[in-house]
Nucleic acid binder design. Structure first.
Lengths: 142, 142
DNA sequence: AATTATAATTGGAATAGTTCTTGATATCGC
DNA sequence: GCGATATCAAGAACTATTCCAATTATAATT
C-alpha cells in the first residue's frame, strides 16, 4: 500500500542562488513562505510563521532577508499608509487594493497596453524607476 | 508717503470653520503654512516653521492639527515608502513624483478623462475610497 | 581536510516617527 | 459669567525598524 501524502503542500524548490543572491537557509525559508502564503505578510508575520521551520531565527534576520530579497528584485515591499511594510513575491508591475472591511489586500494588475505616461501628466523629463499604486475601499457584495 | 508693504506675502484669509472643523489659532497657522509652502512638508517641518508665529505650539499639537485637517478632508497626507508622512493642500486627485536626485516631490495630475477602472483590473465590486500613486525616479536634464 | 577570509545571523540596544496621557487652557452654549 | 466640552502642551510611551557587537556559517585557498 502506498503511503498517503502529507496534508502540507510539498515544499517549493528554491535554487541555491537567485539573481545573484545566495540562498541561505533563512533566506530560503523567508522566500518560500512568501511564495506559499500570498497574503502580503508583514515582517513580524513572516517571522512568526518561519519560526515553525527555523525556531532560532531572529526578527532582525527576517528583516535582513527581506531587505536582501527586495534589493535583488526577488520580492517587492509594499507600503500602505504608515502601516508595517508588507512583502509580496508578485514581481509583475501591479498595484494593491486594500479592502477596508476585511483587511485583505488584493493584487491589482494593469490592463494590457496601459502606459503610465498616457494616464498621468508627468513632469517633463521624468524617468520612472518605481511605481506604487495603493487603493483603499470596499468590496460591494454582489 | 505711503509705507512700503512688507516682503512677506500677506496672510491667506482662513475662515473660522472649514468643512465642519473649527479653526483654532494652531489649526489656522498649520493650514496657512501648507497653503503657502507647497513643498509637502513633514510634521516636523511644519512644526519648525509654524513656531515663528506660534512660539509655544508643540509638536503633538501639530500632529493633532494635521490629523484633524486630514480627517475633515481639508488637506491630504502623503506617504512615501516608510518615510515621515508629508502633507499637501492640493485636494484634486493626484499622485506624486519623488525626484530621487533632489528629493523634490512633484504633484502629478491625471490626464483629463482618465478613469482608474479603465486602467486597472480592479477586483469585482471594488468601490475605491482613496488612491495613492507614488512614483520615484529621476528628472533627465533636457 | 585544515586555515583563513568573508558573509550572515543573533539578540539586544538604539532610533525615529508618531501616538498617548495628563493636567492646563481656551471656547461654546446657556 | 458658568459649567460643559474641546483643544493644547509637555513629556512619556509605543512600534516598526535599524544598528551593533559577538558568534556562527559558508566560501576560498591551500
Amino acid at each position: 500500500m502506498v503511503s498517503k501524502a502529507p496534508e502540507i503542500s510539498s515544499d517549493i524548490e528554491i535554487p541555491d542562488e537567485i539573481s545573484g543572491l545566495r540562498m541561505t537557509a533563512q533566506r530560503r525559508e523567508v522566500y518560500r513562505l512568501l511564495q506559499q502564503e500570498r497574503n502580503h505578510p508583514t515582517a513580524n508575520e513572516v517571522f512568526m510563521r518561519v519560526k515553525d521551520r527555523l525556531p532560532n531565527i531572529s526578527l532582525a534576520t527576517v528583516y535582513n532577508c527581506l531587505e536582501a530579497l527586495v534589493q535583488h528584485g526577488i520580492i517587492r515591499q509594499v507600503n500602505f499608509e504608515r502601516e508595517s511594510s508588507r512583502y509580496c513575491p508578485n514581481l509583475s508591475e501591479h498595484g494593491h487594493f486594500h479592502d477596508a472591511t476585511t483587511g485583505v489586500i488584493h493584487d491589482v494588475d494593469f490592463k494590457p497596453g496601459v502606459n503610465l505616461a498616457d494616464v498621468l501628466n508627468l513632469p517633463p523629463g521624468a524617468v520612472i524607476e518605481d511605481v506604487e499604486i495603493t487603493l483603499r475601499g470596499k468590496l460591494a457584495s454582489i
